[in-house]
């Protein structure tokens, strides 16, 4: 195939992935990665590198607005990166080592199951907009993991504090491994830690997760770049296309961001996950 056609096709796919990814909250990487592997024949570590670049681009796009609006808790986000970054370094290293050992089929199967694991988390409806009865642990108190933000929808300022930091660090380490290994944001797992264990308000959890996703992706991408697995001829159209798609999805059509869109989109992710697993076990 001619490079120009290849790049154009990738950009169009990335625009679509960024669009639906932003509408559903799953992120573009969840769609892009299996498509690169299945339809474009891209080797696993290069596809992971492209996924990491996609995350960097999209998290910078949406992250700027979250930081500007004071929804991101910089203190908590920075602290938890001490777990996600080593996880991502380990994950990216595992991907390269397993690829060198000719174990890409195992990576494909693992990716398929990770995609399937993400779906229920993305569909879950959170019960608490503002958690109550939060008891901060000693570390949370010592480091001042508390804050406030102006909630426009509620029309008031909301104060919050963080609860259990130890289990949150554990989940974040796992999320970092997944992110580094597969080049996806793993935002579902990060929000889980911020929501279930730190018990932050939903908006703060989402914004802080987005903030962390970029730094985690930078850790994995740095390893893959230095190891020679970032290919800019793929990364450029994928990053630009995803940013355009995410921008359109998040700015022009906010009314579409709802559960119905997710329900329509989820079968696509499930089908891609199953196809990825089938490829991994050697079935066409």
């Amino acid at each position: 195939m001619e490079l120009a056609l290849f790049v154009l096709a990738l950009a169009l796919v990335a625009i679509a992935a960024g669009f639906v990814g932003s509408l559903t909250g799953l992120g573009g990487g969840v769609v892009i990665l299996p498509i690169l592997l299945i339809f474009f024949g891209v080797p696993f570590p290069i596809a992971v590198g492209a996924g990491s670049i996609t995350i960097l681009a999209t998290s910078s796009t949406t992250g700027a607005a979250y930081v500007r609006d004071r929804l991101t808790d910089l203190r908590i986000g920075m602290f938890l990166e001490i777990a996600t970054v080593p996880g991502a370094l380990l994950g990216a290293t595992l991907t390269v080592v397993l690829s060198h050992a000719d174990l890409e089929s195992a990576l494909l199967i693992a990716l398929g199951f990770v995609l399937l694991a993400i779906v229920p988390g993305a569909l879950a409806r959170r019960q608490e907009e503002l958690p109550t009865g939060v008891v901060p642990d000693a570390r949370s108190q010592r480091l001042g993991f508390a804050g406030e933000y102006p909630d426009r929808a509620l029309g008031r300022t909301v104060r919050y504090r963080a609860a259990d930091t130890d289990p949150a660090l554990g989940v974040m380490f796992g999320a970092g491994i997944v992110s580094g290994m597969f080049g996806i944001g793993a935002g579902v797992f990060k929000v889980l830690a911020l929501d279930r264990y730190l018990r932050l308000p939903m908006k703060v959890a989402t914004a802080t997760s987005n903030f962390m996703i970029g730094v985690t992706a930078a850790a994995g991408a740095g390893v893959l770049l230095a190891a020679g697995y970032i290919n800019p001829w793929i990364a450029a159209p994928v990053a630009a296309g995803t940013v355009v798609g995410a921008f359109v999805g998040s700015h022009l059509l906010p009314g579409l961001r709802n559960r119905t869109v997710r329900l329509v989109f989820v079968p696509v992710v499930v089908a891609l996950a199953i196809e990825t697993i089938l490829r991994g076990v050697g079935l066409p």
Binding site: I82, T93, A219, G220, V223, G228
Partner: peptide, 18 residues
């Protein structure tokens, strides 16, 4: 420490596993 780990990934781990 986070900053040091990020630099470690680019300068040490990546070239080491290349």
């Amino acid at each position: 420490a986070v900053l040091a780990l990020l630099v470690l990934g680019v300068l040490v781990i990546g070239p080491w596993i290349r």
